[in-house]
Nucleic acid binder design. Structure first.
Length: 480
RNA sequence: GGCGACGUGGCCAAGUGGUAAGGCAAGGGUCUGCAAAACCCUCAUCACCGGUUCGAAUCCGGUCGUCGCCUCCA
């Protein structure tokens, strides 16, 4: 089987061949840390989390770099967003940056997103950015004016090749802010002169200033991944100008192809409207997590192909949550049944089903990371497993274990929607014992037809998020 | 105005040439002390029009509609 990726650069689905056999160098544009992360960030980074997880599952040695942009973004007014926030809060700009960086990682951790291997910060790589700008000036791709440096778009004929734009069209749109000192309205800043009140500033060959928004991704991807690397990812809303500028900077500076495969994630709307800082209609990740579990949110975000847009709505997330509960239900049941299952090897028949599921799952994921279709194979497996567990004969421990392992493998390791800790963790052992004690007491009450006591135990456990289900062969419990 | 994406059952959503995966919801059964869960059954011809083809949701043209980007944004 071959892994295929839809390459936005060529607009074709291509068989994936990494630059170096067995190794994948991958860069994804990270957040600007100036505010709380919202569910739009969750979509992008959950989607790429699964891409990375699947590549690793498939045996690739992945080096995953995702930047933290903590300098360089300007408002229309020319004001730095971070500085503005810092002034409002009367703290140092780097405090703002530090605060939101920490919150960002907390949110990502809470969503079960594996951390990137390297999370370089723009502010920590100013020398690299200056080096690159110097190179661009030397090669005639950039020019300095009054302490600022701009990229000369006309010097790079490929400008627009990713987004399909032409410089002439851009000018037609006339929505580009005209800055007098730029030679061409489409030219973009590599380095900006710092006005006296600008606190985030560094010395440079052009005087005190700070880097432009796009240059950090070019400089840091080169530093950690090389001039040419395999996969560049990001949200599609950044295709222009950001991604386009990255290509222009990197390919002009190094005279080498930049990223070989471009993967862009579709945007997320909230109740039909795009979330944006300017509109202020954001739902933060921490707010969403008060309402839904990380697994439910991941399931929702993975139930649409990564390249498609998603509308985050109450009903859609609820639907996904319930779909997830079905899978979680079977996993919980398997784990409960394993405790009292008769010893024995796994049944051949079941192993065949499991292998078939794994094969189909991989076929779907090999096809441009089709997570929703992969999820569907788990749902189909779930129906088969429930059917199996409802049969009179109890399954052997070997069979149950094999099933459990497949869920851990595909649902846990790859999709990240099966909690791997929980039941087995040391801290949970005591809790499990207590719950079983209550379940046993309830069984005694039921045997004596003391329904009041039986229902009281069940209802109060339900209040704590523990669901009891009476099966012909005894009561099992699971966490909500 | 320019560029791009999309339009599949009540909802979400796979499927890019051979007669529509999966989940949610709904209805009917089975099971249960009651419940919950589960199982079984039922539920679409793919926005519209025209074309190509033995055959199209899937290719081409057009129409309508939704969304995104062009300005900070994942």
């Amino acid at each position: 089987m071959a892994l295929k990726i839809y390459n936005f650069l060529t607009r074709k689905k291509e068989t994936f061949h990494p630059l170096y056999e067995g190794k994948v160098n991958m860069y994804v544009c990270g957040p600007t840390v100036q505010d709380n992360a919202h569910v739009g960030h969750a979509k992008t980074y959950v989607n790429f989390d699964v891409v990375v997880r699947y590549l690793r599952y498939r045996g690739y040695d992945v080096l995953y770099v995702q930047n933290i942009t903590d300098v360089g973004h300007l408002l229309d007014s020319g004001e730095d967003r971070i500085l503005k926030k810092a002034r409002q809060a009367s703290v140092a700009p780097m405090q703002i940056v530090e605060r939101y960086t920490r919150l960002y990682f907390e949110d990502m951790d809470a969503l079960g997103i594996k951390r990137p291997d390297i999370s370089p910060r723009a502010s920590g790589h100013v020398p690299e950015q200056i080096e690159m700008i110097k190179k661009l000036i030397d090669q005639g791709h950039a020019y300095e004016v009054n302490g600022s440096v701009y990229y000369d778009v006309s010097s790079f004929p490929d400008y627009g090749k990713l987004s399909g734009r032409k410089v002439e069209d851009l000018v037609e749109g006339s929505r580009i802010a005209v800055i007098e000192e730029k030679r061409h309205p489409a030219d973009f800043a590599l380095w900006k002169r710092a006005e006296p009140e600008h606190l985030l500033r560094w010395p440079s060959p052009w005087g005190e200033g700070f880097p432009g928004w796009h240059i950090e991704c070019s400089a840091m991807s080169r530093k950690y991944l090389g001039e040419t690397f395999d996969i560049h990812g990001g949200g599609i809303d950044n295709i222009f100008p950001h991604n386009e500028c990255e290509i222009a900077q990197s390919e002009a500076a190094h005279n080498q192809p930049f990223a070989r495969y471009w993967m862009l994630v579709g945007s997320l709307t909230l109740d039909g409207v795009k979330m944006s800082k300017s509109l202020g209609n954001t739902l933060t990740i921490s707010e969403a997590l008060k309402r839904w579990s990380p697994e439910a949110i991941r399931t929702f975000l993975l139930s649409t192909h990564y390249s498609n847009p998603v509308d985050f709505s109450e009903s859609a997330v609820e639907g996904a949550r319930k779909g997830w509960q079905r899978i979680w239900g079977v996993v919980s049941l398997i784990q409960e049944q394993m405790r009292k299952a008769p010893a024995g090897k796994a049944s051949e028949e079941v192993l065949a089903i499991l292998n078939d599921t794994r094969t189909r799952f991989m076929q779907k994921m090999d096809d441009d990371f089709n997570a929703p279709a992969g999820l569907a194979t788990l749902q189909e497996l779930t129906r088969q497993v429930f059917f199996l567990l409802n049969e009179g004969d109890s399954q052997t421990s070997g069979t149950l274990q094999a099933i459990d392992e497949l869920y851990q493998e595909l649902g846990g390791d790859v999709l990240g929607i099966i909690p791997t800790d929980g039941r087995g963790a040391a801290s949970a052992e005591r809790e499990s014992g207590l719950i079983r004690l209550l379940v046993d007491l309830r069984a005694e009450a039921r045997a004596g037809k003391d329904w009041a006591t039986a229902d009281k135990i069940r209802n109060q456990l339900l209040q704590l998020g523990i669901i009891l289900e009476d099966r012909p062969d005894g009561t099992v419990w699971k966490v909500e």
